[in-house]
Design a binder for these strands. Structure first.
Lengths: 185, 185
DNA sequence: GGCTCATAGGAACGAACGTACACAACGGCC
DNA sequence: GGCCGTTGTGTACGTTCGTTCCTATGAGCC
């Protein structure tokens, strides 16, 4: 009588689709793209397996949706910073802050970035997401830097992110600031 | 009578182990780490499936051997260039040459680099290979650059490689040269 | 020539995967 | 309240995977 019949999420579950996208990002961040299977995501989101193929036609479609959401968030956050900067010097400092605070401070974002890089190298659908990210990032930088410099800075930033993700001793804020100033100062 | 009985590699096959490592690199370059399965590699090398687990205790061990061989080759080639450079300016030009000629000119090396990055992000055994690569690369740069600059240049190079692998319009030699000189010139 | 052991070969196992599909449940409309 | 179409659920199928294991072979030594 006092049984607990509904151990699973409620039957009627609006917003489940959204939640699945978020959970997918969690799984990718914690276990990598290779481990982001239908079953792993379903387990993490506490929904039945069939629910995934109902909401998303294929696993690739789900992964693309997840990466798109992540890229949107990061790109928007970065552009806000660039928009808020009154001049070039402030923009560079904001970039340092973005790198040392937002990105390098969050292993999750770092891992997601690298996972996206690699997944995009093989999957054309994901490559579009990556290229969108790169072009948005460059556009944000061009608010305060000329096109050529923006491109160089973008490449340096990419390298810094990668180094931080894979190296044991990441660069600190001072070194990053000095490199950026030498490149764009 | 004129049949072709032995379609497979000879029964006695010294050097097969070496050949397997090379074939593994080929498969990774052509189809990615995710597709580098025992069966795919065995097919590509034209050896029976069991041969792989005989020579290598596990798939990870084989992948590590393959990436190690690749990193050794690239790092040695790069250090040769740095050793040959008489001064700092020549070293920078050699670096430009290394990037535009060796690396960016060869999609294979580019792809292998990115695949290694991503595989290393998850597998500790492969991370050791990546870190060895990074430290060797930095040491080669330090033949002509101070430690701090070498580190910055290394990060920029990493970013350039990644951009080239994923972007549709890679930077050309002039832009790379200009960025390097601004950072290290 | 016979023995021995490292190497070669192929079949098999259990697990995990993406996806398909038939059925259950329920909100919205009459 | 009863119908209907959307949404949710659980099972099953076929494939592929890493790995194991048993057998066959032949080169090197006596």
């Amino acid at each position: 009588m006092t049984s607990v019949p509904a151990r699973r999420a409620r039957r009627h579950d609006p917003g489940r689709r959204d939640r699945l996208v978020d959970t997918t990002l969690d799984v990718i961040a914690e276990q990598g793209v290779a481990a982001a299977t239908h079953r792993a995501i379903a387990r993490a989101a506490d929904v039945p397996l069939g629910s995934l193929t109902y909401h998303f036609g294929s696993l690739t479609e789900l992964l693309a949706a997840a990466f798109t959401r992540h890229v949107d968030a990061v790109a928007e956050r970065f552009d806000e910073r660039m928009r808020a900067a009154p001049d070039r010097a402030a923009a560079l400092e904001a970039l340092v802050e973005h790198l040392t605070g937002d990105l390098l401070g969050s292993p999750r974002d770092l891992v997601l970035a690298v996972e996206l890089y690699v997944a995009a190298a093989r999957d054309p659908a994901l490559r579009a997401v990556t290229q969108d990210w790169m072009s948005r990032s460059r556009r944000s930088l061009e608010r305060h830097l000329d096109r050529v410099t923006a491109r160089e800075v973008d490449a340096l930033v990419e390298g810094l992110v990668l180094h931080s993700a894979l190296s044991t001793d990441p660069m600190d804020a001072d070194r990053i600031r000095s490199a950026l100033h030498r490149l764009a100062g």
